[in-house]
Design a protein around this nucleic acid. Structure first.
Lengths: 118, 118
DNA sequence: ACGCTCCGTTCAGAAAAAGAACTTAACCTC
DNA sequence: GAGGTTAAGTTCTTTTTCTGAACGGAGCGT
Protein backbone atom coordinates (compact mmCIF):
# COMPACT_ATOMS: atom_id res chain seq x y z
CA UNK A 1 0.00 0.00 0.00
CA UNK A 2 2.69 2.46 1.02
CA UNK A 3 4.26 1.66 -2.28
CA UNK A 4 1.92 -0.76 -3.90
CA UNK A 5 2.90 -2.28 -7.22
CA UNK A 6 5.59 -4.55 -5.81
CA UNK A 7 7.10 -6.98 -8.09
CA UNK A 8 8.30 -10.22 -6.73
CA UNK A 9 11.74 -8.88 -6.01
CA UNK A 10 10.55 -6.19 -3.67
CA UNK A 11 8.98 -8.77 -1.43
CA UNK A 12 12.05 -9.14 0.72
CA UNK A 13 11.29 -5.73 2.19
CA UNK A 14 7.58 -6.18 2.59
CA UNK A 15 5.99 -5.39 5.94
CA UNK A 16 4.54 -8.90 6.03
CA UNK A 17 6.77 -11.70 7.30
CA UNK A 18 4.99 -14.21 5.09
CA UNK A 19 5.93 -12.18 2.04
CA UNK A 20 9.53 -11.87 3.20
CA UNK A 21 9.70 -15.61 3.75
CA UNK A 22 8.32 -16.24 0.30
CA UNK A 23 10.88 -13.93 -1.25
CA UNK A 24 13.46 -16.59 -0.40
CA UNK A 25 11.66 -19.92 -0.54
CA UNK A 26 8.54 -19.01 -2.46
CA UNK A 27 9.39 -19.95 -5.97
CA UNK A 28 8.63 -23.03 -7.84
CA UNK A 29 11.21 -25.58 -6.72
CA UNK A 30 12.85 -24.06 -3.72
CA UNK A 31 10.67 -25.51 -0.99
CA UNK A 32 11.01 -28.95 -2.49
CA UNK A 33 14.77 -28.65 -2.40
CA UNK A 34 14.53 -27.74 1.26
CA UNK A 35 12.19 -30.66 1.83
CA UNK A 36 14.72 -32.97 0.22
CA UNK A 37 17.33 -31.64 2.61
CA UNK A 38 15.11 -32.58 5.53
CA UNK A 39 14.81 -36.03 3.97
CA UNK A 40 18.57 -36.38 4.09
CA UNK A 41 19.52 -35.45 0.57
CA UNK A 42 22.50 -33.20 0.22
CA UNK A 43 24.10 -33.50 -3.18
CA UNK A 44 23.47 -31.98 -6.55
CA UNK A 45 22.72 -35.25 -8.28
CA UNK A 46 20.39 -36.35 -5.52
CA UNK A 47 18.27 -33.23 -5.80
CA UNK A 48 18.35 -33.39 -9.54
CA UNK A 49 17.18 -36.95 -9.87
CA UNK A 50 14.63 -36.61 -7.09
CA UNK A 51 12.99 -33.49 -8.48
CA UNK A 52 13.54 -33.72 -12.21
CA UNK A 53 14.36 -30.02 -12.14
CA UNK A 54 16.77 -28.84 -14.83
CA UNK A 55 20.40 -28.74 -13.75
CA UNK A 56 20.64 -25.09 -14.60
CA UNK A 57 17.75 -24.11 -12.40
CA UNK A 58 18.88 -26.36 -9.59
CA UNK A 59 22.29 -24.71 -9.59
CA UNK A 60 20.79 -21.26 -9.36
CA UNK A 61 18.30 -22.24 -6.66
CA UNK A 62 21.01 -23.81 -4.54
CA UNK A 63 23.09 -20.71 -4.95
CA UNK A 64 20.25 -18.54 -3.76
CA UNK A 65 19.58 -20.75 -0.78
CA UNK A 66 23.23 -20.55 0.20
CA UNK A 67 23.31 -16.78 -0.28
CA UNK A 68 20.28 -16.47 1.94
CA UNK A 69 21.76 -18.63 4.66
CA UNK A 70 19.27 -21.46 4.39
CA UNK A 71 21.84 -23.99 3.21
CA UNK A 72 25.57 -24.17 3.50
CA UNK A 73 27.92 -25.63 0.98
CA UNK A 74 30.66 -27.83 2.39
CA UNK A 75 33.40 -29.77 0.67
CA UNK A 76 33.02 -33.49 1.28
CA UNK A 77 35.96 -34.45 -0.85
CA UNK A 78 38.81 -32.19 -1.84
CA UNK A 79 40.50 -34.34 -4.42
CA UNK A 80 37.84 -33.77 -6.97
CA UNK A 81 36.39 -30.72 -5.31
CA UNK A 82 32.88 -31.80 -4.38
CA UNK A 83 30.40 -30.07 -2.19
CA UNK A 84 27.28 -30.98 -0.39
CA UNK A 85 24.48 -28.75 0.76
CA UNK A 86 23.24 -28.93 4.30
CA UNK A 87 20.64 -27.05 6.27
CA UNK A 88 21.85 -24.27 8.51
CA UNK A 89 20.08 -23.40 11.77
CA UNK A 90 17.95 -21.00 9.75
CA UNK A 91 17.12 -23.80 7.35
CA UNK A 92 16.28 -26.25 10.11
CA UNK A 93 13.95 -23.67 11.62
CA UNK A 94 11.89 -24.00 8.51
CA UNK A 95 10.63 -27.37 9.71
CA UNK A 96 7.38 -26.11 11.26
CA UNK A 97 6.36 -24.38 8.05
CA UNK A 98 7.05 -27.54 6.11
CA UNK A 99 5.05 -29.58 8.59
CA UNK A 100 2.16 -27.18 8.17
CA UNK A 101 2.33 -27.69 4.45
CA UNK A 102 2.61 -31.43 4.84
CA UNK A 103 -0.43 -31.62 7.10
CA UNK A 104 -2.49 -29.59 4.72
CA UNK A 105 -1.39 -31.67 1.76
CA UNK A 106 -2.18 -34.83 3.61
CA UNK A 107 -5.60 -33.65 4.67
CA UNK A 108 -6.72 -31.95 1.49
CA UNK A 109 -4.74 -33.21 -1.44
CA UNK A 110 -5.41 -36.91 -1.76
CA UNK A 111 -3.43 -38.86 -4.30
CA UNK A 112 -5.99 -39.39 -6.98
CA UNK A 113 -4.55 -42.60 -8.30
CA UNK A 114 -5.04 -43.25 -11.99
CA UNK A 115 -7.53 -46.04 -12.46
CA UNK A 116 -5.60 -49.32 -12.88
CA UNK A 117 -5.74 -49.92 -16.61
CA UNK A 118 -6.25 -53.69 -16.76
CA UNK B 1 11.98 -41.87 -8.01
CA UNK B 2 9.32 -44.27 -9.25
CA UNK B 3 9.00 -41.95 -12.18
CA UNK B 4 11.55 -39.29 -11.60
CA UNK B 5 11.69 -36.38 -14.04
CA UNK B 6 8.53 -34.75 -12.81
CA UNK B 7 7.72 -31.45 -14.13
CA UNK B 8 5.82 -29.11 -11.97
CA UNK B 9 2.48 -30.33 -13.26
CA UNK B 10 2.98 -33.90 -12.13
CA UNK B 11 3.38 -32.77 -8.56
CA UNK B 12 -0.27 -33.16 -7.73
CA UNK B 13 0.21 -36.91 -7.82
CA UNK B 14 3.49 -37.03 -5.95
CA UNK B 15 3.81 -39.40 -3.01
CA UNK B 16 4.85 -36.46 -0.83
CA UNK B 17 2.08 -34.35 0.69
CA UNK B 18 4.30 -31.29 0.66
CA UNK B 19 4.70 -31.62 -3.09
CA UNK B 20 0.97 -32.10 -3.55
CA UNK B 21 0.28 -29.02 -1.47
CA UNK B 22 2.73 -27.00 -3.51
CA UNK B 23 1.12 -28.11 -6.74
CA UNK B 24 -1.83 -25.91 -5.75
CA UNK B 25 -0.39 -23.08 -3.70
CA UNK B 26 3.28 -23.28 -4.56
CA UNK B 27 3.71 -20.72 -7.25
CA UNK B 28 4.78 -17.19 -7.10
CA UNK B 29 1.72 -15.27 -5.96
CA UNK B 30 -0.74 -17.85 -4.82
CA UNK B 31 0.16 -18.01 -1.16
CA UNK B 32 0.06 -14.25 -0.94
CA UNK B 33 -3.43 -14.25 -2.36
CA UNK B 34 -4.43 -16.73 0.30
CA UNK B 35 -2.74 -14.61 2.94
CA UNK B 36 -4.74 -11.61 1.76
CA UNK B 37 -7.89 -13.67 2.16
CA UNK B 38 -6.96 -14.34 5.76
CA UNK B 39 -6.47 -10.61 6.16
CA UNK B 40 -10.03 -10.04 5.06
CA UNK B 41 -9.58 -9.17 1.44
CA UNK B 42 -11.99 -10.78 -0.94
CA UNK B 43 -12.30 -8.81 -4.16
CA UNK B 44 -10.34 -8.70 -7.37
CA UNK B 45 -9.37 -5.07 -7.03
CA UNK B 46 -8.31 -5.53 -3.43
CA UNK B 47 -5.91 -8.32 -4.29
CA UNK B 48 -4.65 -6.47 -7.28
CA UNK B 49 -3.81 -3.26 -5.51
CA UNK B 50 -2.40 -5.03 -2.49
CA UNK B 51 -0.07 -7.28 -4.43
CA UNK B 52 0.76 -5.33 -7.54
CA UNK B 53 0.31 -8.55 -9.48
CA UNK B 54 -0.83 -8.21 -13.06
CA UNK B 55 -4.54 -8.53 -13.56
CA UNK B 56 -4.10 -11.33 -16.01
CA UNK B 57 -2.10 -13.43 -13.60
CA UNK B 58 -4.40 -12.64 -10.71
CA UNK B 59 -7.41 -13.81 -12.71
CA UNK B 60 -5.74 -17.10 -13.54
CA UNK B 61 -4.53 -17.67 -9.99
CA UNK B 62 -7.97 -17.03 -8.56
CA UNK B 63 -9.44 -19.41 -11.06
CA UNK B 64 -7.04 -22.12 -10.03
CA UNK B 65 -7.71 -21.57 -6.34
CA UNK B 66 -11.43 -21.88 -6.97
CA UNK B 67 -10.97 -24.99 -9.11
CA UNK B 68 -8.95 -26.54 -6.34
CA UNK B 69 -11.49 -25.74 -3.68
CA UNK B 70 -9.35 -23.31 -1.71
CA UNK B 71 -11.56 -20.33 -2.46
CA UNK B 72 -15.13 -20.00 -3.50
CA UNK B 73 -16.54 -17.38 -5.78
CA UNK B 74 -19.81 -15.85 -4.71
CA UNK B 75 -21.88 -13.13 -6.26
CA UNK B 76 -22.22 -10.17 -3.95
CA UNK B 77 -24.26 -8.17 -6.40
CA UNK B 78 -26.21 -9.53 -9.29
CA UNK B 79 -27.13 -6.35 -11.06
CA UNK B 80 -23.68 -5.77 -12.32
CA UNK B 81 -22.55 -9.33 -11.80
CA UNK B 82 -19.79 -9.02 -9.24
CA UNK B 83 -18.10 -11.75 -7.29
CA UNK B 84 -15.97 -12.04 -4.26
CA UNK B 85 -13.60 -14.78 -3.26
CA UNK B 86 -13.73 -16.35 0.16
CA UNK B 87 -11.85 -19.12 1.86
CA UNK B 88 -13.50 -22.49 1.99
CA UNK B 89 -12.93 -24.88 4.89
CA UNK B 90 -10.02 -26.26 2.93
CA UNK B 91 -8.64 -22.79 2.54
CA UNK B 92 -9.09 -21.95 6.20
CA UNK B 93 -7.23 -25.11 7.09
CA UNK B 94 -4.23 -23.59 5.44
CA UNK B 95 -3.78 -21.26 8.40
CA UNK B 96 -1.19 -23.37 10.26
CA UNK B 97 1.07 -23.52 7.23
CA UNK B 98 0.81 -19.78 6.84
CA UNK B 99 1.61 -19.30 10.50
CA UNK B 100 4.69 -21.47 10.09
CA UNK B 101 5.80 -19.32 7.23
CA UNK B 102 5.06 -16.16 9.16
CA UNK B 103 7.06 -17.29 12.16
CA UNK B 104 10.02 -18.19 10.02
CA UNK B 105 9.88 -14.90 8.17
CA UNK B 106 9.64 -13.01 11.40
CA UNK B 107 12.58 -14.84 12.95
CA UNK B 108 14.89 -15.00 9.97
CA UNK B 109 13.98 -12.36 7.45
CA UNK B 110 14.41 -8.98 9.10
CA UNK B 111 13.32 -5.93 7.17
CA UNK B 112 16.64 -4.51 6.09
CA UNK B 113 15.61 -0.94 5.89
CA UNK B 114 17.42 1.16 3.32
CA UNK B 115 19.94 3.44 4.99
CA UNK B 116 18.42 6.92 5.37
CA UNK B 117 20.09 8.87 2.61
CA UNK B 118 20.70 12.21 4.31
C1' DA C 1 44.36 -44.71 -22.00
C1' DC C 2 39.35 -44.97 -21.70
C1' DG C 3 35.17 -44.63 -19.85
C1' DC C 4 32.49 -43.22 -15.62
C1' DT C 5 30.67 -40.15 -11.96
C1' DC C 6 29.74 -35.69 -10.03
C1' DC C 7 28.87 -30.86 -10.41
C1' DG C 8 28.12 -27.82 -12.76
C1' DT C 9 27.87 -24.20 -17.36
C1' DT C 10 26.20 -22.86 -21.96
C1' DC C 11 22.90 -22.07 -25.46
C1' DA C 12 18.58 -22.21 -28.32
C1' DG C 13 13.74 -22.52 -27.95
C1' DA C 14 9.39 -22.81 -25.21
C1' DA C 15 6.61 -21.26 -21.56
C1' DA C 16 5.25 -17.97 -18.16
C1' DA C 17 4.97 -13.31 -16.34
C1' DA C 18 4.87 -8.20 -16.85
C1' DG C 19 2.70 -3.97 -18.49
C1' DA C 20 -0.62 -1.55 -20.43
C1' DA C 21 -4.71 -0.86 -23.03
C1' DC C 22 -9.37 -2.52 -24.01
C1' DT C 23 -14.21 -4.61 -22.76
C1' DT C 24 -18.57 -5.13 -20.47
C1' DA C 25 -22.09 -3.79 -17.60
C1' DA C 26 -24.17 -1.23 -14.38
C1' DC C 27 -24.20 2.84 -11.46
C1' DC C 28 -23.88 8.07 -10.43
C1' DT C 29 -24.22 12.91 -11.61
C1' DC C 30 -25.61 16.39 -14.00
C1' DG D 1 -29.02 10.70 -21.83
C1' DA D 2 -23.91 11.92 -22.24
C1' DG D 3 -20.04 11.35 -19.77
C1' DG D 4 -17.45 9.65 -15.91
C1' DT D 5 -16.51 5.92 -12.40
C1' DT D 6 -16.07 1.28 -10.44
C1' DA D 7 -15.43 -3.68 -10.67
C1' DA D 8 -13.92 -7.67 -12.85
C1' DG D 9 -11.90 -9.40 -16.24
C1' DT D 10 -9.67 -10.09 -21.27
C1' DT D 11 -6.42 -9.20 -24.97
C1' DC D 12 -2.24 -7.85 -26.69
C1' DT D 13 2.93 -7.27 -27.04
C1' DT D 14 7.36 -7.41 -24.82
C1' DT D 15 10.45 -9.22 -21.36
C1' DT D 16 11.91 -12.69 -18.16
C1' DT D 17 12.25 -17.28 -16.70
C1' DC D 18 12.43 -22.26 -17.41
C1' DT D 19 13.30 -26.35 -20.12
C1' DG D 20 16.01 -29.69 -22.71
C1' DA D 21 19.84 -31.28 -24.15
C1' DA D 22 24.60 -31.06 -24.89
C1' DC D 23 29.25 -29.73 -23.32
C1' DG D 24 33.30 -29.31 -19.80
C1' DG D 25 36.61 -30.55 -16.45
C1' DA D 26 38.51 -32.95 -12.71
C1' DG D 27 39.53 -36.81 -10.62
C1' DC D 28 38.70 -42.22 -10.14
C1' DG D 29 38.60 -47.25 -11.35
C1' DT D 30 40.54 -50.72 -14.36
Amino acid sequence: MSRAANKWDDLSEDWCPVARALSVIGDRWTMLIVRDCFLGKSRFEQFQSSLGITRHLLASRLKRLVENGVLEKNPYTLKPPRYDYRLTAKGRDFAPALVGLKDWGKAHMPVRRAAPAN
